[in-house]
Every structure is written in C-alpha cells, then in structure tokens.
Amino acid sequence: MPRRKFVTGLALAASLAGAVLFRRRSRGRDRVDLYYDDGSTLSLGDGSPEASIVLPLARRVLAAATS
C-alpha cells in the first residue's frame, strides 16, 4: 500500500514538472500564425525563413506600443 502511494505521488509530481517545463519552453518561443482569405492557415516557427521576415516587423509594432 505505501509503495502504491509512493508511485502515485511520483507520477503526479512528474506530470506537474512536465507541465511547468512545457509551459516555460513554449512561452519562450516566437510563433507566427497566418490565416488566409481562401480559408487556409500557416503556422511558422521561430527558425523558418518566412517567420524571419514577419517577426522583425511585428517586433517593430510591439516596440512602438511600449515606447
């Protein structure tokens, strides 16, 4: 019985740590989501060449908003 409790506690702690780690990692990443007139969508990660054009422009807008 104590062993079962220990395993359950360990599983809960591991899932909590995983959730926190996932949230922290995803928070640090920049992402671009594009929705087009024809109904198609495009998601771009930080490293993609298309995102490298869109992201600096968006950062310029954000900088203007905070200044």
Binding site: R27, V32, Y35, D37
Partner: peptide
Amino acid sequence: RQVAQLEVSTSAG
C-alpha cells in the same frame, strides 16, 4: 495569398 488574419506571439507580447 491574401492574408485575412495574423497573430504573431512573442515573449514580450
């Protein structure tokens, strides 16, 4: 294609 909506997420906003 013509963009209808766009969302750019960064850590700053």
